[in-house]
């Protein structure tokens, strides 16, 4: 079941043209995106995510290769035709004084409206549909500038959606937001891709959320190569580990998370009893300050984990701690 690609690149090279010559950032990019696909573009700061997105949306020229939209070369489209195919959400915050949420979203209809920008019945129907999809009905008449960052981001996504294009590019749509808002945005994007069969390509740094929520991930590694696939595949084949190299941190394959490299101290602890969750967080607390949890009782200090407290058994002493913070200070105390 091979679907026709809505966006395709052949040996694409993106970068800047400086007075001193061309500066290539990413080259030999070959990829396809099909309708309804939602892809998260990841990579270290400055690796060229934004440049790639801007080149794909024709905001910036690319250096070599070809981009095809619906099978036709992007250079054969006029600005106007392109606006019916690609819409964008940028990372910069914008100020729009005295303009309501509904008016901002309605701007998305511009490529479809007549010379004077009159909103027809058909446009109105589309706008109502978009506003309800993004659950913005309650704030549709509020001023854009009075909204919170998360709401503004949703409005800008709704505007892109109102443009009714088969492709939407978003540059870091989850930056500046708190975790539930980030998840809300990702959920909305997923809904758009599933229900409207829109191809969505967005960049993000929120690996923890992306690995859980994004169906597909593209990772740009240190050499500038692009690896695509399901998040879990990329973990298993080591792509993630190798793409975000840092001397002080490592990628934990088990957890699928980046962690601090720790020089563990000699003394070890054995956690006894308690439920798995409490033991998990106890182990993490100890690891943060350099103590390892041992699987064997021998040679380790025993900590009894119970639903209400922690008890350290040390040299026939019993130290009762009500919180992990207290536990840490006790350990520091007798190790010193």
């Amino acid at each position: 079941m091979t679907q026709v690609a809505v966006l395709e690149s052949k040996d694409l090279c993106v970068g800047f043209t400086l007075p001193s010559g061309k500066k290539e950032i990413l080259k030999n990019l070959n990829f396809k995106i099909t309708p309804g696909e939602m892809i998260c573009l990841m990579g270290a700061n400055g690796c060229g995510k934004t440049t790639l997105l801007r080149s794909l949306s024709a905001l910036e020229p690319f250096l070599a290769g070809d981009i095809f939209i619906n099978g036709k070369n992007i250079s054969t489209y006029s600005q106007k035709q392109l606006s019916l195919l690609v819409s964008i959400v940028l990372t910069e915050r914008i100020h729009v004084p005295k303009f309501s949420v509904a008016e901002v979203i309605a701007l998305g209809r511009q490529p479809h409206t007549s010379f004077w920008g009159r909103i027809t019945k058909k446009d109105k129907k589309k706008l109502e549909e978009v506003i309800s999809l993004a659950s913005l009905g309650e704030i549709a008449n509020e001023l854009y500038d009075s909204l919170s960052d998360g709401q503004k981001q949703k409005v800008l996504i709704a505007r892109a959606l109102a443009q009714d294009t088969p492709i939407i590019f978003l540059d870091e749509p989850t930056t500046y937001l708190d975790i539930p808002k980030k998840m809300e945005i990702l959920k909305l994007l997923k809904k758009i891709a599933d229900e409207k069969k829109v191809a969505i390509l967005f960049s993000s740094h929120d690996w923890d959320l992306i690995s859980h929520m994004a169906p597909k991930v593209w990772v740009i590694d240190e050499s500038g190569a692009l690896h695509g696939g399901i998040a879990e595949d990329l973990i298993l084949d080591g792509t993630i580990k190798h793409s975000f190299n840092h001397p002080d941190f490592y990628f934990d394959d088990q957890d699928g998370r980046f962690k601090e490299k720790i020089d563990f101290k000699k003394s070890k602890f054995f956690l006894q009893g308690g439920d798995a969750t409490r033991k998990h967080w106890t182990a993490q607390t100890l690891a943060k300050v350099g103590y390892q949890v041992s699987k064997k009782k021998e040679g380790a200090t025993i900590i009894e984990v119970s639903p209400k407290q922690w008890v350290i058994l040390h040299k026939k002493q019993r130290m009762i701690c009500k919180s992990l913070e207290m536990l840490l200070s006790q350990i520091h105390h007798f190790k010193a």
Binding site: L59, Q79, S83, I88, L90, V96, L107, Q110, P111, Q163
Partner: peptide, 12 residues
């Protein structure tokens, strides 16, 4: 009103 980039992406 949304800035030059958005205007461009809307066909201007």
């Amino acid at each position: 009103l949304l800035g030059e980039q958005y205007a461009k992406s809307m066909g201007l």
